[in-house]
Computed example of a mutant assay.
Amino acid sequence: MFLTHARQRARLAASALLAAAALALTACGGDAEGQPDPTASPATSAAAQTPTPTPAATPSYKPASADGPAENVPLPKMPKEAKEKTHAGLEAFARHWYALLNYAYESGDAAPLKAITSGDCERCQMVYKGLEAQESSTWTIGGEVQIQQISTNFAADSNGIYQLPVQLKRMGATHYVDGEKHSTDAPGGLTLDLFMARYEKGEWTAQDVGVIKGP
């Protein structure tokens, strides 16, 4: 009987020692209450505490007015469809080209238009030169070109150039020089352009823009 009681006391003592050891390990390693882990990397802790930078605000678009030229003009994005060698693709490309033409006139930046236009486009060269000659003290309100209708024609000539008639209308415009109103243009009548483009290496390039019918 004595041995039995002695063995029970020994087992209880061993259990107490194991429990104390477990508590000590828990205290050293951190617990579920969020105690710090001394083995954690200082770099990791610093990274976790670094605040996420706030994205810079996009400058807001300001159209041209009597107070000055347009500012932060949004650049038109080419739709995915404009990469397809289909009539729908060519039409989407033509619409994008004229959107970039309007962008060039409003912002003074012709680089995006040049990027999708052949250097052989003579009419385009006239546009570029006009923009380059324009001084910062000169600007225009309105005057954008609006597409009214696009032909369903989709056939290439012997040189692989597709010709697409495009009906346009130019909006009225007011021109300013040195902050003073200089002249105004009434809305134009309907005109008909012949938009010519070539498809190579998975994309369209404007080759030239002729005038079938003027205002």
Score class of each variant (00 low, 15 high):
Tyr105Phe: 08
Tyr105Leu: 05
Tyr105Asp: 02
Tyr105Gln: 05
Tyr105Ala: 03
Tyr105Glu: 06
Glu106Met: 06
Ser107Met: 11
Ser107Glu: 09
Gly108Cys: 08
Asp109Ala: 14
Ala110His: 13
Ala110Val: 15
Ala111Trp: 11
Pro112Phe: 10
Pro112Val: 07
Leu113Ser: 11
Leu113Trp: 12
Lys114Pro: 09
Lys114Ile: 12
Lys114Leu: 13
Ile116Met: 14
Ile116Asn: 12
Thr117Trp: 15
Thr117Pro: 15
Thr117Arg: 13
Thr117Met: 15
Ser118Pro: 14
Gly119Phe: 12
Asp120Met: 10
Asp120Thr: 07
Cys121Gly: 10
Cys121Thr: 07
Cys121Met: 09
Arg123Thr: 12
Arg123Ala: 15
Arg123His: 13
Arg123Phe: 10
Arg123Met: 11
Cys124Thr: 07
Gln125Trp: 15
Gln125Val: 15
Met126Lys: 14
Val127Asn: 09
Tyr128Ile: 14
Lys129Asp: 15
Gly130Tyr: 07
Glu132Asp: 12
Glu132Pro: 06
Ala133Tyr: 04
Gln134Phe: 07
Glu135Lys: 15
Glu135Ile: 04
Glu135Met: 11
Ser136Ile: 15
Thr138Pro: 02
Thr138Tyr: 07
Thr138Ala: 10
Trp139Gln: 03
Thr140Gly: 02
Ile141Cys: 04
Gly142Arg: 01
Gly142Tyr: 03
Glu144Gly: 01
Glu144Pro: 00
Glu144Val: 01
Glu144Met: 00
Val145Cys: 00
Gln146Cys: 01
Gln146Arg: 02
Ile147Lys: 00
Ile147Val: 01
Gln148Asp: 05
Gln148Val: 04
Gln149Glu: 08
Ile150Leu: 05
Ile150Asn: 06
Ser151Val: 08
Ser151His: 06
Thr152Lys: 11
Thr152Ala: 08
Phe154Ile: 05
Phe154Ser: 06
Ala155Asn: 07
Ala156Glu: 11
Asp157Val: 07
Asn159Tyr: 10
Gly160Met: 08
Tyr162Lys: 10
Gln163His: 15
Gln163Ala: 14
Leu164Gln: 10
Pro165Asp: 12
Pro165Cys: 13
Pro165Met: 14
Val166His: 00
Val166Met: 01
Gln167Asn: 03
Leu168Pro: 00
Lys169His: 01
Lys169Leu: 01
Lys169Val: 01
Arg170Met: 02
Gly172Asp: 04
Ala173Lys: 02
Ala173His: 00
Thr174Ile: 04
Thr174Tyr: 01
Tyr176Leu: 06
Tyr176Val: 04
Val177Ala: 10
Asp178Ser: 15
Asp178Arg: 12
Gly179Met: 13
Glu180Ala: 13
Glu180Trp: 02
Glu180Thr: 09
Lys181Thr: 03
His182Cys: 04
Ser183Ala: 15
Ser183His: 09
Thr184Ala: 05
Pro187Ala: 03
Gly189Met: 07
Gly189Glu: 11
Gly189Arg: 12
Leu190Asp: 03
Leu190Tyr: 05
Leu190Met: 05
Thr191His: 00
Thr191Lys: 02
Leu192Ala: 05
Leu192Trp: 02
Leu192Arg: 05
Leu192Cys: 02
Asp193Phe: 00
Leu194Asp: 09
Leu194His: 06
Leu194Val: 06
Phe195Cys: 01
Met196Arg: 10
Ala197Met: 11
Tyr199Arg: 04
Glu200Ser: 11
Lys201Gly: 07
Lys201Leu: 09
Lys201Gln: 11
Gly202Asp: 12
Gly202Leu: 13
Gly202Cys: 15
